[in-house]
Design a protein around this nucleic acid. Sequence first.
DNA 1: CGGCATTAGATTGTGCACAACTGAATTGTG
DNA 2: CACAATTCAGTTGTGCACAATCTAATGCCG
Lengths: 151, 151
Amino acid sequence: MSTPTADWLRLDQQICFSLNAASRAFGGVYRVVLKDLGLTYPQYLVMLVLWEDGELPVKRLGERLRLDSGTLSPLLKRLEAAGLVRRERSARDERSVQVRPTEEGLALRERAVEVPRRIAAATGFELAEIEELRARLDRLTSALDRAAAEG
Amino acid sequence: MSTPTADWLRLDQQICFSLNAASRAFGGVYRVVLKDLGLTYPQYLVMLVLWEDGELPVKRLGERLRLDSGTLSPLLKRLEAAGLVRRERSARDERSVQVRPTEEGLALRERAVEVPRRIAAATGFELAEIEELRARLDRLTSALDRAAAEG
DNA sequence: CGGCATTAGATTGTGCACAACTGAATTGTG
DNA sequence: CACAATTCAGTTGTGCACAATCTAATGCCG
């Protein structure tokens, strides 16, 4: 015997709402924690990738973070204005713009190592539970992307 | 053997990134599905509450959706401009503004009943799994809100 | 080589999230 | 009653997400 249609309709509305609410709640915590570093959450994500990769074109950055140039261009300009990042046209391919952290941007990493621990503490979750949730969310994202692509 | 501290800064280990990605992936699916109705996702949430409650002040709407007046005021103006909603100052308390669906807004409900089923199908998740995920996300949100409040 | 499609990034415009502030109405307290 | 504190909605300003469009550089193919 399957669940009545009307029931899972209601629950489904709540899952996206819960997800959205959780995402915004995270935003609130990050706002507090990142305030000292002078970063917003998306800017922090960009810096994470740069700390990992050292240097990469805007294109790759967008692929890593699922963001397009409409979001990244102004964001990178702000990071550049803050002195954390430099952007320069690639010599080999002048369509491409290389982004790399400045000395100041690299130095910021040492103050950022605190961040994940503080965030993890704020969730009140065990590491294993976080990991499981993350896996489930990634699976969800893949399914949703597939569905959106198919129309 | 535990994860080295340095690895905590890795992008792919940050739960918030997965959460944020899932939330935006949902956004993509809703954009497609809600296009026919002429609604954005947050506007759809507002209409859901109005279809349920019939009429309520902006304050209550904000409590239900975790949104403040800075978000709701312009959103409601757009819904009013679209003819789906009416806003009027309460006679009893003139600080308060009552929001209620117009005839057209109520009629839209019939075209919206399709939406949740299509979204649920896009997730590819079973009802039980959705429910469990929702419960976990709500618990996460509560913990994060508490942490943000404490600073 | 010439010409056309493709690619990278920037720009423009719309809408949402949120902080900070404003102004008007109401409530609580002396 | 007077008046200070609170409440509610709106406004302003910043930043992000995303679609659509633009420009310039590159690649490809005959």
